[in-house]
Design a protein around this nucleic acid. Sequence first.
DNA 1: ACCATGACGTTTC
DNA 2: CGAAACGCCATGG
Length: 111
Amino acid sequence: MKESDNFFEKVYQVARLIPYGKVTTYGSIANYLGAARSARMVGWAMNNSHNQTKEVPAHRVVNRKGLLTGKHHFGGTNLMQQLLENEGISVVENQIQELEKVLWDPVKELS
DNA sequence: ACCATGACGTTTC
DNA sequence: CGAAACGCCATGG
C-alpha cells in the first residue's frame, strides 16, 4: 500500500494494545495519533481492518458515548456485544455500561 | 474535478 | 439539559 498505511497500522496497533476487559474511543485513538480531527478516519481504518492480516479487536473500540456503533460491521449480529460481555464489560442496548471504568485511553495510559 | 457518504466529535441553538 | 448542525479527513462514484 502506501506510507499512509502507517496511520491505519497505528490504529490497529493501538487497538491490539487495548487490555482485556477495556475499551477505547475513536477520538482517543485519533488524538493519540495526532489526528484528533480525524476521528472518522479511525473508524474508516477499522472498516479496512478486515483487510488486515492481523486480527483487530475493533469490538473494543467504540465511540465517545460508548455506543457500539460499529457492531453492525461485525456481522450484523450481537457478536460485538457478546465479545465485550465476554470480557466482563456490561453492554445494554449496544451501549457500554460503566464506560468510565472500562475506558482505556492510550494518550492517558501511554502518555 | 466535484459531490456524496461515513465504525466521530465538538460546538451552538 | 436536549437536540441539531457543522466541521474534519479520506475514500468512492
